[in-house]
Amino acid sequence: QWIQSKREDIVNQMTEACLNQSLDALLSRDLIMKEDYELVSTKPTRTSKVRQLLDTTDIQGEEFAKVIVQKLKDNKQMGLQ
């Protein structure tokens, strides 16, 4: 999976804004449970939030991952090649 192969780059480069947009999009599509949303959003640092989101992606699967990839594209953060 692309996200896993780029995990380190995503953790380093995903902005707080992109992270929040991803969470909002996942929530609005019922792809993330409120508990998982809280787990991510209550982490103390941006990098720990991104790591938690990516860990959740492993469990949730492809549809979940597609939303995150789309948000990275929207925010022009796909220089993660």
Rank of each mutant, 00 (worst) to 15 (best):
R51Q: 13
L27V: 13
D30C: 08
E62S: 03
I68N: 06
G79S: 13
K43Q: 12
E63I: 05
R46P: 05
E8Y: 01
I10G: 02
I68T: 08
D24G: 02
R7Q: 06
Q60G: 13
K66C: 08
Y37G: 05
E35P: 09
S22G: 05
G61M: 00
N75C: 11
L27G: 04
Q21C: 06
D30M: 01
N75K: 05
Q60V: 09
K66Y: 01
I59Y: 08
D36M: 02
I3M: 09
T57S: 15
S48Y: 03
R46F: 06
R29A: 13
N12F: 03
Q60K: 08
G61I: 00
Q70I: 04
S48H: 06
K71E: 10
L39M: 10
K43R: 14
Q4I: 15
K76C: 14
S48C: 09
D24H: 04
D24A: 12
E35A: 10
L39I: 08
D30I: 00
L26W: 00
K76L: 12
D9M: 08
K76D: 11
I68P: 06
K73Y: 13
D30A: 12
K71M: 12
L72D: 01
Q60L: 08
E35L: 04
V50D: 06
D55S: 11
S41R: 14
Q52Y: 02
Q52G: 04
E63R: 07
L19S: 01
V67H: 07
E16K: 05
T57Q: 14
I3K: 00
G61P: 04
Q52T: 09
K73P: 03
E38M: 12
R7K: 14
T15W: 00
Q52K: 06
Q13W: 01
E16H: 03
L72T: 06
K73H: 08
V69Q: 09
T57Y: 03
Q70E: 15
S5P: 03
S5K: 11
I68K: 00
M14T: 13
F64H: 06
S41M: 15
N75D: 13
L53T: 07
L31V: 04
L26I: 00
K73Q: 14
P44V: 10
G61T: 12
E38S: 07
R7A: 08
I59S: 09
T56K: 04
L23Y: 01
L19E: 06
R46H: 13
A65D: 04
Q60E: 13
T56A: 11
Q21M: 02
A65R: 03
D24P: 03
T42I: 10
D24Q: 05
S48R: 06
N75W: 10
E63D: 09
C18M: 09
W2N: 11
R46L: 15
E38D: 15
V11H: 03
E16M: 11
L53H: 03
E8T: 10
K73M: 12
K43H: 12
R7E: 07
T15R: 00
R51Y: 02
P44G: 08
C18D: 01
I32V: 08
T42V: 07
Q70S: 11
T45S: 13
S48P: 03
D74H: 14
D9Y: 12
K76S: 14
E8G: 09
T15N: 05
E8M: 09
V50N: 02
A17M: 10
S5Y: 02
K34L: 12
K49A: 04
A25F: 13
L53V: 04
D24K: 08
Q21E: 12
V50Y: 02
K76P: 08
K43M: 07
T15C: 01
S41V: 15
E8F: 02
K49N: 02
C18P: 09
E62W: 00
L27Q: 09
K43G: 06
F64G: 10
T15P: 06
T45L: 02
Q21A: 15
M33F: 04
R29Y: 08
Q13S: 14
V69D: 09
L72W: 04
L23K: 04
E63Y: 01
Q70P: 04
E8C: 00
T56S: 09
G61V: 10
T57P: 13
V67I: 15
L23V: 05
K76T: 12
L27A: 10
V11G: 05
T56N: 04
V69K: 08
S48A: 14
P44M: 06
A65Y: 02
I10Q: 05
V40I: 15
N20Q: 12
D9G: 05
T57F: 07
T15G: 04
L26E: 08
K6F: 15
N20H: 15
L39Y: 07
Q1W: 13
A17P: 08
Q52C: 10
I10M: 07
R29F: 15
L80M: 08
V69N: 00
E16C: 01
V11M: 12
L31A: 04
Q70A: 13
S28E: 14
D55K: 06
L19H: 01
N20K: 15
K71Y: 10
T42P: 01
K34C: 11
S48D: 14
N12Q: 10
Q52S: 11
E63C: 05
V50S: 07
L23P: 06
V11N: 04
D30R: 13
